[in-house]
Computed example of a mutant assay.
Amino acid sequence: MTTVAVMAEPPESGAVLTDLVEHDRLTPDEASELYAGMFADVCEAIDGSGAELLVNYRADEQVSSEDGTSEREVRSALDGVVDTDEVRFEVQVGSTESARAGNTITHLLEREGVRTAAVVRPTAALLGRQHIDTAAMKLRSNGVVLGPSTAGRVSYAGFAEPIDFEDAFQTPTVETLVQRATDAGLAVDFLQTIPVVERDADLSTVVSLLRARSRADRLVPTRTTAALDEFGFEVVDRDGTATVVRP
Protein backbone atom coordinates (compact mmCIF):
# COMPACT_ATOMS: atom_id res chain seq x y z
CA MET A 1 0.00 0.00 0.00
CA THR A 2 1.26 3.47 -0.89
CA THR A 3 0.95 6.18 1.73
CA VAL A 4 -0.13 9.38 -0.04
CA ALA A 5 0.45 12.67 1.76
CA VAL A 6 -1.63 15.67 0.72
CA MET A 7 0.50 18.76 1.41
CA ALA A 8 -2.27 20.99 2.71
CA GLU A 9 -2.58 24.62 3.72
CA PRO A 10 -5.44 25.63 5.99
CA PRO A 11 -8.08 27.11 3.62
CA GLU A 12 -7.87 30.56 5.19
CA SER A 13 -9.45 33.47 3.32
CA GLY A 14 -6.68 35.62 1.85
CA ALA A 15 -3.98 32.98 2.33
CA VAL A 16 -4.66 30.49 -0.49
CA LEU A 17 -4.80 30.79 -4.29
CA THR A 18 -3.42 34.30 -3.94
CA ASP A 19 -2.50 34.55 -7.63
CA LEU A 20 -6.16 34.18 -8.58
CA VAL A 21 -7.07 36.88 -6.07
CA GLU A 22 -4.36 39.23 -7.32
CA HIS A 23 -5.63 38.81 -10.89
CA ASP A 24 -9.18 39.66 -9.72
CA ARG A 25 -10.49 36.24 -10.69
CA LEU A 26 -11.71 35.46 -7.18
CA THR A 27 -12.34 37.25 -3.92
CA PRO A 28 -10.34 35.96 -0.94
CA ASP A 29 -13.44 34.15 0.36
CA GLU A 30 -14.09 32.56 -3.05
CA ALA A 31 -10.44 31.45 -3.24
CA SER A 32 -10.82 29.82 0.16
CA GLU A 33 -14.00 28.04 -0.99
CA LEU A 34 -12.37 26.76 -4.18
CA TYR A 35 -9.21 25.62 -2.38
CA ALA A 36 -11.24 23.78 0.27
CA GLY A 37 -13.28 22.09 -2.45
CA MET A 38 -10.21 20.93 -4.38
CA PHE A 39 -8.55 19.71 -1.20
CA ALA A 40 -11.65 17.74 -0.24
CA ASP A 41 -11.98 16.21 -3.72
CA VAL A 42 -8.32 15.11 -3.71
CA CYS A 43 -8.59 13.57 -0.25
CA GLU A 44 -11.82 11.77 -1.17
CA ALA A 45 -10.14 10.27 -4.25
CA ILE A 46 -7.16 9.03 -2.24
CA ASP A 47 -9.38 7.68 0.55
CA GLY A 48 -11.42 5.76 -2.02
CA SER A 49 -8.33 4.24 -3.64
CA GLY A 50 -6.10 1.47 -2.40
CA ALA A 51 -3.74 3.97 -0.78
CA GLU A 52 -3.45 5.25 2.78
CA LEU A 53 -4.39 8.94 3.10
CA LEU A 54 -2.12 11.18 5.15
CA VAL A 55 -3.05 14.85 5.51
CA ASN A 56 0.21 16.74 6.00
CA TYR A 57 -0.69 20.24 7.19
CA ARG A 58 1.41 23.36 7.65
CA ALA A 59 2.67 24.21 11.13
CA ASP A 60 0.73 26.95 12.96
CA GLU A 61 3.74 29.26 13.07
CA GLN A 62 4.10 29.09 9.26
CA VAL A 63 0.56 30.21 8.44
CA SER A 64 -1.85 32.93 9.43
CA SER A 65 -4.77 31.22 11.13
CA GLU A 66 -7.64 33.30 12.48
CA ASP A 67 -10.14 30.50 13.07
CA GLY A 68 -8.03 28.13 15.13
CA THR A 69 -5.15 25.80 14.63
CA SER A 70 -4.02 24.67 11.21
CA GLU A 71 -5.02 21.09 11.97
CA ARG A 72 -8.50 22.12 13.07
CA GLU A 73 -9.06 24.02 9.83
CA VAL A 74 -7.94 21.21 7.51
CA ARG A 75 -10.00 18.72 9.52
CA SER A 76 -13.03 20.98 9.20
CA ALA A 77 -12.62 21.09 5.40
CA LEU A 78 -12.90 17.28 5.34
CA ASP A 79 -15.95 16.93 7.60
CA GLY A 80 -18.47 14.71 5.83
CA VAL A 81 -15.95 13.86 3.10
CA VAL A 82 -13.78 11.25 4.80
CA ASP A 83 -13.79 9.73 8.27
CA THR A 84 -11.41 12.16 9.95
CA ASP A 85 -11.12 9.84 12.95
CA GLU A 86 -9.56 7.22 10.67
CA VAL A 87 -7.32 9.54 8.59
CA ARG A 88 -3.80 10.42 9.67
CA PHE A 89 -3.10 14.12 10.26
CA GLU A 90 0.53 15.15 10.75
CA VAL A 91 2.29 18.50 10.74
CA GLN A 92 4.74 19.33 7.95
CA VAL A 93 8.39 19.85 8.89
CA GLY A 94 10.60 22.19 6.87
CA SER A 95 10.85 25.79 5.71
CA THR A 96 10.49 25.16 1.94
CA GLU A 97 8.28 23.00 -0.25
CA SER A 98 11.26 20.77 -1.11
CA ALA A 99 12.17 20.34 2.54
CA ARG A 100 8.61 19.61 3.64
CA ALA A 101 7.97 17.08 0.88
CA GLY A 102 11.40 15.51 1.31
CA ASN A 103 11.06 15.18 5.06
CA THR A 104 7.65 13.55 4.67
CA ILE A 105 8.79 11.02 2.08
CA THR A 106 12.04 10.19 3.87
CA HIS A 107 10.27 9.75 7.21
CA LEU A 108 7.67 7.41 5.71
CA LEU A 109 10.17 5.28 3.80
CA GLU A 110 13.01 5.13 6.31
CA ARG A 111 11.41 5.63 9.74
CA GLU A 112 8.02 4.01 9.23
CA GLY A 113 9.18 1.46 6.68
CA VAL A 114 6.32 1.90 4.24
CA ARG A 115 6.98 0.31 0.88
CA THR A 116 6.10 3.35 -1.23
CA ALA A 117 5.13 6.95 -0.42
CA ALA A 118 3.90 9.94 -2.38
CA VAL A 119 3.12 13.62 -2.03
CA VAL A 120 0.18 15.26 -3.78
CA ARG A 121 -0.84 18.88 -4.35
CA PRO A 122 -4.29 19.67 -2.90
CA THR A 123 -4.90 21.80 -6.00
CA ALA A 124 -4.82 18.74 -8.29
CA ALA A 125 -8.58 18.24 -8.16
CA LEU A 126 -8.65 16.10 -11.32
CA LEU A 127 -6.42 13.52 -9.67
CA GLY A 128 -8.73 10.53 -9.38
CA ARG A 129 -8.58 7.25 -7.52
CA GLN A 130 -7.63 5.51 -10.78
CA HIS A 131 -4.52 7.69 -11.00
CA ILE A 132 -3.57 6.84 -7.42
CA ASP A 133 -3.96 3.11 -8.04
CA THR A 134 -2.12 3.27 -11.37
CA ALA A 135 0.78 5.07 -9.69
CA ALA A 136 0.92 2.39 -6.98
CA MET A 137 1.24 -0.30 -9.65
CA LYS A 138 3.99 1.62 -11.45
CA LEU A 139 5.89 2.05 -8.18
CA ARG A 140 6.27 -1.73 -7.96
CA SER A 141 8.81 -1.60 -10.78
CA ASN A 142 10.02 2.04 -10.70
CA GLY A 143 11.80 4.03 -8.04
CA VAL A 144 9.90 7.23 -8.85
CA VAL A 145 6.51 7.90 -10.47
CA LEU A 146 5.46 11.45 -11.36
CA GLY A 147 2.18 13.00 -12.39
CA PRO A 148 3.22 15.90 -14.63
CA SER A 149 1.20 19.09 -14.58
CA THR A 150 1.37 22.27 -16.62
CA ALA A 151 4.28 24.76 -16.51
CA GLY A 152 6.77 22.12 -15.36
CA ARG A 153 4.92 21.35 -12.13
CA VAL A 154 3.80 17.99 -10.76
CA SER A 155 0.48 16.97 -9.27
CA TYR A 156 1.79 13.67 -7.83
CA ALA A 157 5.26 12.50 -6.87
CA GLY A 158 5.68 8.92 -5.66
CA PHE A 159 8.82 7.20 -4.40
CA ALA A 160 9.98 3.70 -3.58
CA GLU A 161 13.32 5.09 -2.38
CA PRO A 162 14.40 8.52 -1.14
CA ILE A 163 16.31 10.90 -3.41
CA ASP A 164 18.28 14.07 -2.75
CA PHE A 165 15.37 16.38 -1.96
CA GLU A 166 17.34 19.61 -1.48
CA ASP A 167 15.64 22.12 -3.83
CA ALA A 168 14.13 19.12 -5.67
CA PHE A 169 10.80 20.90 -6.16
CA GLN A 170 12.36 23.92 -7.84
CA THR A 171 10.87 24.92 -11.18
CA PRO A 172 10.70 23.04 -13.51
CA THR A 173 9.82 20.50 -10.85
CA VAL A 174 9.21 17.55 -13.16
CA GLU A 175 12.67 17.90 -14.72
CA THR A 176 14.40 18.46 -11.40
CA LEU A 177 12.81 15.39 -9.82
CA VAL A 178 13.68 13.22 -12.80
CA GLN A 179 17.29 14.43 -12.67
CA ARG A 180 17.54 13.60 -8.96
CA ALA A 181 15.96 10.20 -9.53
CA THR A 182 18.27 9.26 -12.38
CA ASP A 183 21.28 10.58 -10.42
CA ALA A 184 20.27 8.05 -7.75
CA GLY A 185 20.03 5.28 -10.34
CA LEU A 186 16.26 5.01 -10.08
CA ALA A 187 13.88 4.22 -12.94
CA VAL A 188 11.16 6.81 -13.53
CA ASP A 189 7.65 6.44 -14.95
CA PHE A 190 4.82 8.90 -15.44
CA LEU A 191 1.08 9.29 -15.06
CA GLN A 192 -0.92 11.28 -17.58
CA THR A 193 -0.72 15.05 -17.31
CA ILE A 194 -3.04 16.29 -14.56
CA PRO A 195 -3.60 20.07 -14.34
CA VAL A 196 -3.57 21.95 -11.07
CA VAL A 197 -5.35 25.21 -10.20
CA GLU A 198 -2.91 27.61 -8.58
CA ARG A 199 -2.35 30.44 -11.07
CA ASP A 200 -4.45 32.60 -13.36
CA ALA A 201 -3.11 30.74 -16.41
CA ASP A 202 -4.44 27.43 -14.99
CA LEU A 203 -8.09 28.45 -15.10
CA SER A 204 -8.73 28.14 -18.83
CA THR A 205 -7.38 24.58 -18.91
CA VAL A 206 -9.29 23.31 -15.90
CA VAL A 207 -12.56 25.18 -16.44
CA SER A 208 -12.79 24.03 -20.07
CA LEU A 209 -11.91 20.44 -19.20
CA LEU A 210 -14.40 20.19 -16.35
CA ARG A 211 -17.22 21.73 -18.40
CA ALA A 212 -16.47 19.31 -21.24
CA ARG A 213 -16.42 16.30 -18.91
CA SER A 214 -19.68 17.40 -17.29
CA ARG A 215 -21.41 17.73 -20.65
CA ALA A 216 -20.14 14.28 -21.63
CA ASP A 217 -21.48 12.83 -18.35
CA ARG A 218 -17.99 11.80 -17.30
CA LEU A 219 -16.67 11.74 -13.75
CA VAL A 220 -15.67 15.14 -12.34
CA PRO A 221 -14.47 16.32 -8.91
CA THR A 222 -17.83 17.37 -7.51
CA ARG A 223 -16.89 20.17 -5.09
CA THR A 224 -14.38 21.78 -7.44
CA THR A 225 -16.84 21.69 -10.32
CA ALA A 226 -19.64 23.10 -8.17
CA ALA A 227 -17.46 25.99 -7.00
CA LEU A 228 -16.33 26.91 -10.52
CA ASP A 229 -19.93 26.69 -11.76
CA GLU A 230 -21.05 28.90 -8.88
CA PHE A 231 -18.49 31.54 -9.89
CA GLY A 232 -19.80 31.40 -13.46
CA PHE A 233 -16.47 30.85 -15.20
CA GLU A 234 -16.56 30.20 -18.94
CA VAL A 235 -13.81 29.88 -21.53
CA VAL A 236 -14.21 32.00 -24.68
CA ASP A 237 -12.09 32.73 -27.73
CA ARG A 238 -10.46 36.16 -27.64
CA ASP A 239 -8.32 36.80 -30.72
CA GLY A 240 -7.42 33.14 -30.95
CA THR A 241 -6.62 32.79 -27.25
CA ALA A 242 -8.67 30.76 -24.75
CA THR A 243 -9.74 33.28 -22.13
CA VAL A 244 -11.67 32.76 -18.89
CA VAL A 245 -14.56 35.16 -18.22
CA ARG A 246 -17.21 35.39 -15.55
CA PRO A 247 -20.41 37.42 -15.28
Rank of each mutant, 00 (worst) to 15 (best):
A226Q: 08
G102S: 14
E86M: 08
D200M: 06
D183T: 05
T134C: 03
A125N: 03
G113W: 10
E110Y: 11
G152W: 08
T3W: 01
E30C: 13
A242P: 13
E90P: 01
A136R: 01
F39P: 02
Y35H: 14
S149C: 11
E86Y: 05
N56R: 11
A125V: 12
H131E: 09
E97F: 05
E198P: 03
A31M: 05
A77P: 13
T106E: 15
V245P: 11
R75I: 14
N103P: 08
A136V: 00
E73V: 05
V55A: 02
F159W: 00
T193S: 14
L109Q: 02
S155L: 07
S149G: 14
A157G: 12
F169L: 10
T241P: 10
F39A: 00
D183S: 02
R180I: 15
S204P: 09
V87W: 07
A77T: 09
S208Y: 15
A124T: 03
L186A: 13
D29M: 07
V81S: 06
S70E: 03
S141R: 14
T182A: 07
E44C: 03
G102F: 05
L126M: 15
A59M: 06
G128I: 12
V91W: 11
S214W: 14
A226R: 12
T150V: 01
V6H: 00
A226W: 01
E22P: 03
A40R: 09
F169M: 09
D41Y: 08
D79V: 11
V6R: 05
R121Y: 09
K138T: 01
A201F: 04
G128E: 04
A160Y: 03
M137E: 11
R140C: 07
V21P: 10
M1G: 11
T176M: 15
G80R: 10
T182D: 10
T27A: 10
A45S: 08
E73A: 13
D67H: 15
T116Y: 08
R72D: 13
S13Q: 15
S98K: 13
M7I: 07
V55T: 04
S141H: 03
I194W: 11
L34Y: 14
L186V: 14
G240F: 02
S204I: 12
D133A: 00
L53F: 00
G240C: 13
T18Q: 11
D239S: 11
